[in-house]
């Protein structure tokens, strides 16, 4: 069975003042209807670029899709015209951003903005669209939706605004919902509410969700499958249980063990030394080699490829050679 959304060998380059850099390198991901794929990594690992590529929102120039394919229900989005992408965005796939204040237009009421999104893709009257917008606000758990629909974004709290964004995103029942760090700007109790809401919406609409986050805890609570990204590549991928319980790549292991946990109070956290290398300084070898305890000469000369090992695919020479 082929997946609902399938990214194959995607390669995205950006022109910078350091010359062209590869922001995404042979990234392959897939997500099925009703499933949540978590994409996790530190800032600059390419997780947001992946989301923007799917939506066809890579700023171009300087960005460019240099290879690979993104198939939504079989249709290759990298070959689609801009008009076709506009028709798909919002209708077949939608995106929720990190900062709900800046992604809502401050001079229109939230009800009008949702109604506008509906009318872009469906032939309904303005009145009907507004009534649908109110119903959606009710659906995402906003109290007294009739009144709130007439509010402007600044009159709502951060959590409410994110609910409005979700209502707008699901207004046309998209098949794929991409959530890019949807709760980073929110408090934990509100984050919990948003996560619960996303799960409910998935149950009701059967959408595929791609959750982009830096938080392993969020992955654990939300994702069925996980892809760990580092410096523009997927370095480990698999079922959430497998990756979280039996991480293979030294980076994934580091990420999991450096989280200060709620349950236990050990004295020293495991740390990953150093920082993510900037993309224009990537060499021929593994991008993680500088920070890795299992570094060998081969790691500096040859990029490890993602290949099945044990439970799930991982891109690491040390794992492949049985040194870990």
């Amino acid at each position: 069975m082929s997946a609902l959304l399938q990214i194959e060998d995607l390669r995205v380059t950006f022109n910078t003042r350091y010359g062209p850099v590869t922001a995404l390198d042979s990234v392959s991901l897939s997500v099925n209807a009703g499933e949540t794929l978590g994409v996790v990594g530190e800032s600059g690992c390419g997780k947001s670029i992946t989301a923007l590529s799917v939506m066809g929102l890579i700023p171009s120039p300087p960005g460019k899709i240099a290879g690979g394919a993104i198939r939504l229900a079989g249709e290759d989005l990298t070959q689609a015209s801009e008009a076709r992408m506009r028709a798909l965005r919002g209708a077949e796939m939608a995106m929720i951003f990190q900062e709900p204040m800046t992604s809502l237009n401050p001079v229109f009421t939230v009800g009008d903005q949702i109604a506008e999104a509906i009318m872009l893709h469906q032939k309904v009257s303005a009145d009907q669209a507004f009534r649908d917008a109110v119903a959606l606000l009710d659906r995402v758990g906003i109290p007294s939706p009739d009144r709130r629909a007439r509010d402007y974004p600044h009159q709502l709290s951060g959590g409410m605004r994110q609910r409005v964004m979700i209502a707008m995103a699901v207004s046309c029942r998209p098949k794929v919902l991409i959530a890019d760090e949807p709760t980073t700007a929110l408090d934990v109790t509100v984050q919990a509410q948003i996560f619960d809401l996303l799960n409910e919406i998935q149950r009701d609409f059967g959408a595929a969700i791609i959750l982009i986050t830096h938080d392993m805890g969020a992955i654990s609570e939300m994702a069925d499958r996980v892809a760990v990204m580092y410096a523009g590549r997927v370095i480990e991928q698999g079922r959430a249980d497998d990756v979280l319980d039996l991480p293979q790549h030294p980076y994934t292991r580091g990420l999991i063990s450096c989280i200060p946990a709620l349950g236990k109070g050990e004295d020293t956290l495991r740390e990953i030394p150093g920082v993510v290398p900037p993309l224009h300084m990537l060499g021929a070898g593994c991008a993680f080699a500088d920070r890795c305890a299992y570094r060998a000469p081969r790691c500096d000369s040859e990029k490890p490829q993602l290949q099945a090992h044990g439970h799930h695919p991982v891109a690491c020479h040390a794992v492949e050679e049985g040194r870990i």
Partner: peptide, 8 residues
């Protein structure tokens, strides 16, 4: 423990 200088 020390982070490498990332860029000049």
């Amino acid at each position: 423990m020390t982070e490498a200088t990332t860029f000049k």
